[in-house]
C-alpha cells in the first residue's frame, strides 16, 4: 500500500483515491498515479472538466476528435460504466485493468464478448458481425465483394456457432477464443505491466511513496 501526501490528495480531489483503486486492480499505487497523469491529459484535451467525453476519447485514439468510429463508440460505452456519457477516473482505471497482462482470461473473454455484442442482447449475432466487418473494411479502405464477406461470415459462424442457432452465446465465445487465442490479442496491453518506466513522462508528477509491502 502506498502513503499519500496531502498535496497529492489535493491533486486527486473529486477523483477516487489511487490507494483504493490499486487495491482493487492489478496496478500498483504509483501506476494508478501514472494513469492519472494520462487521464488528466485526455480529460482536459477538449473540455478541462476532469472527465473524458467521447470527443476526447476519439482524439486520444485517432488524434482526430471528429472521427466517429463504431469500435471507439463501443469501447467508450464499455468504459462508461456508470452510463453518464463520460468516463471518470475510477471507470478509466478499472476498465484498463482488464487489459493488464495479469488480468484473468475470464475477464478478457467477458469484455471482448460484450464488446462484440453491440446490441447488448447477450448474443453476438451474424448481423452485428457483418456490421463490424463492413466498418473495419471502411476504416482500412479495403474492398471485399459481398459474397466474399458472406463467405467469411459463413466460415466464422461455422467455427463459432456450435449449436447452429445463428448467434454466438457466451459459452460458444469462450470456447472459440480458446481455440483462437489471437482473438484476445487486443485485450492485453503489455506495457501496462509497468507504466512508470514505460511512460516516464507521467512519473515526474508522482507524489506517492510506495512503502515496500
Amino acid at each position: 500500500m502506498g502513503c499519500f501526501h496531502s498535496t497529492a490528495a489535493r491533486e486527486f480531489s473529486g477523483h477516487e483515491n489511487p490507494v483504493k483503486l490499486a487495491s482493487e486492480t492489478a496496478f500498483s499505487v504509483s501506476e494508478v498515479e501514472a494513469l492519472f497523469e494520462l487521464f488528466k491529459r485526455i480529460s482536459s484535451s477538449v473540455v478541462d472538466d476532469g472527465l473524458i467525453n467521447k470527443e476526447e476519447f476519439q482524439l486520444a485514439l485517432f488524434q482526430n476528435r471528429k472521427k466517429e468510429n463504431l469500435f471507439a463508440n463501443r469501447i467508450f460505452d464499455l468504459f462508461d460504466v456508470k452510463r453518464k456519457g463520460v468516463i471518470d477516473f475510477g471507470d478509466f482505471v478499472r476498465s484498463l485493468n482488464v487489459f493488464h497482462p495479469n488480468a484473468s482470461l475470464e475477464d478478457k473473454t467477458d469484455f471482448s464478448f460484450r464488446l462484440y455484442d453491440m446490441d447488448c442482447t447477450g448474443f453476438i449475432e451474424r448481423q452485428e458481425v457483418k456490421q463490424m466487418l463492413i466498418a473495419l473494411l471502411c476504416e482500412s479502405e479495403m474492398k471485399l465483394a459481398d459474397d466474399t464477406i458472406e463467405m467469411i461470415l459463413d466460415q466464422t459462424f461455422n467455427d463459432a456457432d456450435v449449436d447452429r442457432d445463428g448467434k454466438i452465446d457466451k459459452t460458444e465465445w469462450s470456447d472459440f477464443v480458446i481455440k483462437n487465442p489471437s482473438l484476445l490479442k487486443i485485450m492485453t496491453l503489455p506495457y501496462l505491466r509497468d507504466i512508470t518506466t514505460t511512460f516516464p513522462s507521467f512519473v515526474f508528477n508522482s507524489e506517492v511513496d510506495e512503502i515496500a509491502t
Binding site: A60, Q63, N69, I75, S140, A160, S182, I186
Partner: peptide
Amino acid sequence: QPTSMNAFELISMSRALDLGNLFEE
C-alpha cells in the same frame, strides 16, 4: 488473405481496438 481469416481476426485489426494509442503523445 482476408478470406482465410475469421471475421473477428479482421475486426480486431481496427485502430480503435488498439488502446495503446491512448498512450501516444
